[in-house]
Design a protein around this nucleic acid. Sequence first.
DNA 1: AATTGGCAGTCGCACAGTGCGAGTGCTAAT
DNA 2: ATTAGCACTCGCACTGTGCGACTGCCAATT
Lengths: 340, 340
Amino acid sequence: MVSERGLDVLRVIVKDYVASREPVGSKSIVDRHAFGVSAATIRNDMALLEEEDLIVAPHTSSGRIPTDKGYRVFVDHLADLRPLSPAQRHAIEMFLGASADMDEVLVRTVRLLSQLTHQVALVQYPSVAHARVRHIELVPLGSARLMTVLITDTGRVEQRLIDVREELTDLVVAELRAKLNAAIAGTGLADAGTALKAIPATFPAQDVPVVTQVVTSLMEQVAAGRHDKLVMAGTANLVRTEEDFSGSIYPVLEAIEEQVTLLKLFGEMEPDRTGVSVSIGRENAQFGLGEASVLTTGYTASRGELARLGVLGPTRMDYSNNMAAVRAVARYLSRLLGDD
Amino acid sequence: MVSERGLDVLRVIVKDYVASREPVGSKSIVDRHAFGVSAATIRNDMALLEEEDLIVAPHTSSGRIPTDKGYRVFVDHLADLRPLSPAQRHAIEMFLGASADMDEVLVRTVRLLSQLTHQVALVQYPSVAHARVRHIELVPLGSARLMTVLITDTGRVEQRLIDVREELTDLVVAELRAKLNAAIAGTGLADAGTALKAIPATFPAQDVPVVTQVVTSLMEQVAAGRHDKLVMAGTANLVRTEEDFSGSIYPVLEAIEEQVTLLKLFGEMEPDRTGVSVSIGRENAQFGLGEASVLTTGYTASRGELARLGVLGPTRMDYSNNMAAVRAVARYLSRLLGDD
DNA sequence: AATTGGCAGTCGCACAGTGCGAGTGCTAAT
DNA sequence: ATTAGCACTCGCACTGTGCGACTGCCAATT
């Protein structure tokens, strides 16, 4: 069994390794930290830790580095949620200053988070699942193309192009627009589908096919509106930490560009005791991110909608600082977007 | 003076170097290409080319590699616009199949382009400068916050958040919405500002301050709507070509994330004889991209609006293929978005 | 005048050999 | 349980060396 002091040893191994990127040996531990025991004792503790698979020696007679399991124990039991530095608080305050449109807010948030953590930052758009339709707009583009715009009361805007097979006169467009808005403005996205179905029948026979096409597309759009979007910043930071990935960071960058993967990962993560959910190393292997860790937490947008934000970086990252930053930014963003 | 054959030599040096990433020597040239002369003759030509600063030897007695100037001459005079391979054409056709909303189209386009070229691909959103206002929507969020949505007839949607200082009743919002739409629906973005100014005066005195605030914000939004946006894909490709950048690719990735930089660069590039504009190596030094090349061309969105798309990669890239791909994708996108 | 074969000279690079130092595990003593 | 001592293991940085690729120049050839 690993002793109390043994866990302290694990803690400093994680900290020192994260800071220096070098395997840490028993000697350097007693030098840098006041343990009050000799190096040999530390060595015994380290042997225990290695038996428990919490640390490994990359090669005979070098210092030890934490395993994924070691990081897990560190995060769950040992990490002190270090409060943000004054400089970091200042950065958040600065950012809070101006508010613009929603896209802009999320872009600024994600940049802020990436600067605070020096990692890749991710912010999920608020979900539209519980939103209500605020307005539908039809925009004819040329003679055979129509753009539909769906605005929800949570501020989400979805647009879509339709190639209409038959001529669509301005008159029909205007009528359709009016009827659509009358029918579904105010209804929840979940119910909008049924409200739409009845519309085509109210048109003269010769317009039914084309109107049906438009309405069908709109129904698809309503259904598809639930898929989520991500904004991202700080991919350059991945390069900075390149040495922490054994092979190339190419597959990591690929996984990141494939947002679907990340969204799935986001979906699977549940918050832990600190409110920040952490997924470490091989726990992400199925997503091609076996050497990366992901920290996320939720934030609330308007109308109580929940979405997530977080950071992604090498397994060897500063969990204490990054967890604190993620939590702080989520709070600020919630306040900024919330209903008050 | 560089002879006709000398230029041929430059051409094969560029081609071979791009393909192999290794300095090319006189021997390998006569081996791989049927020049009908001996290596010594090629050596003489190469000495000439070096005098003209078109190629250099990275170190004594190694093969030669093209200079930026060499690439420039290659692009301007020697590159054959190789037609796309059947596989590439196929990829474009596949992509053409489905059409969805505008964001979706641009995202798919940029991914396609990055796959065709194996470089970072960039697509600029169509400019809104000449657009007309189609609809304005006001969405109250909570009690003290309002979201404004501006839809143009080119399919661009701009949204923005306002913190209203005073209570804004639903009644006032509805009235304001109606008046706004009556006043500026159909006017060009350029004229919208003046049309808006008169609105606040038509409200009862106690509502004037808050209405003025909303209208002012909208005017800003109209003015700001001209700033452009980029979508991007394939940053992972930069990592693949990392060896082509002398230092780290970190500054390159940073410059790319700073979209303002790229937009400025886009703005400065004029198409050349082939319709594709090329900026090579140190020509981009002011943007932190001194070891990169950028190929762009224009495409036309609906209503004849012009925007640009292109790729960015290491100076040592396959210009022939990439120029062809950029041109082909621009054509397809123009057809897809065009008025017909 | 252009081209060619020959030849000496240069220099990067891959490779093997070596010594150093950091760190470990084990054991016997406290 | 803790400690000092010690033999042992390896990674790593350094060095020297031989090889090969390529060039530039020159005298001979067409």
